[in-house]
Simulated scan of single mutants.
Amino acid sequence: MKSGVVIALGLAVSMGSASAASTTSPAEIMNDLAHATNSGDLPAARALFTSSPTIVDSFAPFSWQGANAVDKWWSSFGRFSKRHGMSNIDVELSAPLVSEFDREKDDAYVVVPGVITGSMNGSTFRMTGRNTGVLTLTPAGWRIVVWAWTDDPH
């Protein structure tokens, strides 16, 4: 249950858009995703991904792939959070731990620590973990190809 909250919250990003992505770094795109999730802005979140991404998170079915991966992940998290009485979820990301770029291929690998807070069944919770992203530079800017959340050990 804790890991699902963290991963889902890790996906949250600031309100991003295709135009915003063109001027920001891969780490900023990860942060944009957290803000979009926090604000409940599915279109902004969707705009940060490639057309057929892979998402890995700690709640069933644990992996979403293809053209509708973002929408399916979003829907799965909605069901998960409702089932566990989650509300007021907020994801905050820190500076990247790893930010490697392959300039030749315009690919990036980014690891960003995050903290997810909120309420679960009336009690507050706080979870920490890592957002890992593989991004590619497209004509519209950096886009997420693969996104995953990993809980910190407890």
Rank of each mutant, 00 (worst) to 15 (best):
K2I: 02
G4W: 01
V5A: 05
V6N: 01
V6C: 02
V6G: 05
A8Y: 00
A8I: 00
A12I: 02
G16W: 01
S17D: 08
A20N: 01
A21R: 02
T24K: 08
T24C: 07
S25E: 07
P26E: 03
P26Y: 00
E28K: 03
I29S: 03
I29K: 05
M30G: 04
M30C: 08
M30N: 02
M30T: 00
L33R: 00
L33N: 00
H35L: 09
A36T: 05
N38S: 12
N38V: 11
N38P: 09
S39W: 00
G40T: 03
G40S: 06
D41Q: 11
P43S: 13
A44N: 06
R46T: 13
L48W: 03
F49R: 13
S51N: 14
S51T: 14
P53R: 14
P53S: 15
T54S: 15
I55V: 12
D57N: 09
S58K: 07
F59E: 13
F59W: 13
P61Y: 14
P61V: 15
F62M: 13
F62G: 11
S63V: 15
S63E: 15
W64Q: 08
Q65T: 11
G66P: 10
A67C: 02
A67M: 07
A69Y: 02
A69S: 08
A69Q: 06
V70D: 09
V70I: 15
V70F: 08
V70C: 09
D71V: 01
K72G: 03
K72E: 12
S75L: 14
S76Y: 06
G78C: 08
R79K: 04
R79E: 04
S81W: 06
K82L: 08
R83M: 11
H84G: 02
M86W: 08
M86G: 06
M86E: 04
S87V: 09
S87P: 07
N88P: 08
N88R: 12
I89Q: 10
V91E: 13
V91D: 14
V91S: 15
E92V: 03
S94C: 10
S94R: 10
A95M: 00
A95W: 00
P96I: 02
V98K: 11
V98F: 06
S99T: 07
E100H: 06
D102G: 04
R103D: 11
R103W: 05
E104L: 03
E104Y: 02
D106H: 14
D106W: 10
A108E: 02
A108Q: 03
A108L: 03
Y109Q: 04
V110S: 09
V112I: 11
P113R: 01
G114R: 05
I116C: 11
T117A: 11
S119H: 11
M120P: 05
T124V: 14
F125L: 07
M127P: 02
M127W: 05
G129H: 01
R130T: 02
N131K: 05
T132D: 07
G133C: 09
G133S: 09
G133M: 10
V134W: 14
V134I: 15
L135T: 02
T136W: 12
L137W: 13
P139E: 15
A140Q: 15
A140Y: 10
G141H: 06
G141C: 06
R143S: 15
R143Y: 12
I144H: 04
W147E: 08
D151I: 00
D152S: 15
H154M: 12
